[in-house]
Design a binder for these strands. Sequence first.
DNA 1: TTGTAAGCGTTATCAC
DNA 2: GTGATAACGCTTACAA
Lengths: 331, 331
Amino acid sequence: MASRSGRVTATDVAREAGVSQTTVSYVLNDAPHQKISESTRRKVLDAVAKLGYQPSAAARALRLGRSELVLMLLPDVPVGDSLATLVELLGDELERHRLSLITRRTQHAPVSSLWRELMPAAVLTSLGVSAEDMAGMRAAGIPVVSVEIDAATHPLGLPIHQTLIGRMQVERLAATGHTRIGYAAPRQPRLRDFLEPRLAGVRAACAELGLEAPAVLDVPLDAAAAAAAADQWHSAVPAVTGVCAYNDETAFALLAGMRRVGLSAPGDLAVIGVDNDKLAPFAVPPLTTIDNNLDILAGRVARLIVGSIADDTVSAAPQSVPVSLVVRESA
Amino acid sequence: MASRSGRVTATDVAREAGVSQTTVSYVLNDAPHQKISESTRRKVLDAVAKLGYQPSAAARALRLGRSELVLMLLPDVPVGDSLATLVELLGDELERHRLSLITRRTQHAPVSSLWRELMPAAVLTSLGVSAEDMAGMRAAGIPVVSVEIDAATHPLGLPIHQTLIGRMQVERLAATGHTRIGYAAPRQPRLRDFLEPRLAGVRAACAELGLEAPAVLDVPLDAAAAAAAADQWHSAVPAVTGVCAYNDETAFALLAGMRRVGLSAPGDLAVIGVDNDKLAPFAVPPLTTIDNNLDILAGRVARLIVGSIADDTVSAAPQSVPVSLVVRESA
DNA sequence: TTGTAAGCGTTATCAC
DNA sequence: GTGATAACGCTTACAA
């Protein structure tokens, strides 16, 4: 029976089981250093089941000084397919550990007020979190895992090798005989932070393979504009014959643009995307792309989080996440 | 200065401002029935700013009996593009009201333990939440907003007119001269609950327009399989000339399948999707589709939630969400 | 107008 | 082995 409010509390369970509330807590938390007799344990568990008791997350958080929430700070970019997928996968993964994922845009509220308020069990950052905030969180004992673009500056984070992605795109194009490479960049300035490392990888790979620097053009998500870019690449001298697209979305736009000016892939212009979008197999022609294996990343990040919550030692070995080439027909 | 833990509490602010902790609370909560002198208010706010005080969500939740979390219960289907978008938009919208959206799969944990544990400010349900859970939540005073498929059974929810979507698809095809309609259904049995009302709408519209019942075929996300379906429709007697796809994804697969067997849209087979996927303009040919205006839905749901948290009167007027036809070239 | 004090439901430190 | 008891940080009658 509930005390006076509608809620069933540990005290109610204690009363029902004929033990003290303390004992209930011991049983439920699997006795840190306590020995609970089997009979008591039974009585308590029975009472719990009978009353349908659920501990209050708020009370627990207040007492422990940290909640079971994982705060994910998102950069202020339009969340694309792949980031959305990562969030979803991560949420599922964390759910298995009784953790709830909360996402917040970095810009909407000062980051510091956010973590102070929520006392999250861990914080996941990607971009745009200030060094002070980082330090503050760490000082407060909150494990911070950063899924960063640039592995070098964040040695404790889990890197997505954006640079590697760019490299792999070029390598594929080079392997299929292309020597003059184009890069289809999205227009939104907001994406700059994501774009740059990928483009850097492309540039580096071109240099290493002895190719000319990539011809970078804006390819907005608009067929007409994409057509202009396609045309420009095609009629350059020497002509660009292979294009790395920032992502699959951009690749789709480019393919549509090419169609408008009578160009086809991979004959006139080979196109390779990034993300392995669900629709990539249905592009015309089916889109060759780089899969960043977000499911694997999600699993690793989740494990890293769970681990750093358990151990205080943030031994977060920054394992790089595999990235794979998916060959279809466009490149 | 923090008491002894690292945290800055309202008591610290009080000390700094030279007032009682109560006064701090009054000032910060904008004085329900209190009159605070301007000078005190200033002192408090200054101290808050100086110390960087942030109230503890846990303590507040414990005291108030409810947190500032909004729990969204998701059906156990692979979260597709459109549901993911809804979640994202909703999260952004709720963030503006200082609410945090938490998503959970209905199946992973018993629903009752979830809400009892989190004491959410509101719960958002879509499918697969039992009547008992509903009743339990309502009894506990938690506003429940259901974004349901079937408006009739959930008069307090906010309906997405899935049925209307199906209707509109057929109407477009009929308007462009098609009399024999096909329906491209996804294979996953998990999607049944979403599929059925749409298909029902298609059936109803066919009947009302005096057309034959739709020829329903499975169109999995596989070009080869989709090709078989396309062929079957095309060679039926009388031939199916217009197909409603379950969603844009299915439509993409179908278009790819058609290409394999030398069929083209809309000439041989007109295709109309649902979702207005970002990539729909880049389909070959550009995909005609139904936009379910999730941004509008998200806004309404958010307002409904915020409203029902404020008022206790769940006057949730179930306003239906507009759905619009986006004409491109495929149908 | 401001302060005192009683909880909200846990966990954890002691006694027994 | 088990049980009082004191926080955790906040809101809100009730006093002053």
